[in-house]
Amino acid sequence: MTGTTPAKQPANNTPSSNPVLRRALTLGGFVALGIAVVGGIIGFVVDGGVGLLSALIGTGLAVIFMGVTAATILLANRFSGSDLFVGAFFGIVLGGWLLKFVVFLVVVIILKDQAWVNPVVLFLSLIAGVIGSLIVDVLVMMKSRMPYVSDVTLPNQSTDERPEQK
């Protein structure tokens, strides 16, 4: 670079949280798979096919609904260049949160009276999924390297972790 153009490049407004959230979602999926396998085996031993299904449903519910927050933040960050970013961000994140809980309520009410669901196995696997998801979130956050500001690239940062250059 000859030094004639660097100042013309517009600032990159992509928030630096994107790689952290993306990594948390990926790792959360793997941990959910592990919890589903272990919970499914325990559920199958306890209550046969009903227990297996309940464990899978419980883990799936926990991980999907816990992951929605990170997913909505990632979605909202696509509008980071907009003047309405702050409003759009909190609208999307909190709207997603509200929608998620309404859907969760409906699902739980429907599942409550089904004969093919073991409530205890479902409940315990839900708790296992929620706690596993929280552990993954905290570990990812603690191990993450984030720049203080959003328009820099850390040295030795891998390409997929870099904020998208505009």
Binding site: P15, S16, S17, N18, V20, L21, A62, F65, M66, T69, A70, I73, N77, S80, W97, F101, F104, L105, V108, I109, L111, K112, P119, L122, F123, L126, I127, V130, I131, S133, L134, D137, V138, M141, S144, M146, P147, Y148, V149, S150
Partner: peptide, 29 residues
């Protein structure tokens, strides 16, 4: 600082919503 604050907000929301999930599931199951 939006990026850093978003991550902290996300962790805070995750912990508080965990309580809501467990509470609602307990009530309805």
């Amino acid at each position: 600082l939006a990026g850093r604050l978003q991550v902290l907000m996300w962790i805070g929301i995750a912990f508080t919503e965990a309580l809501a999930f467990i509470g609602i599931a307990t009530a309805f199951i």
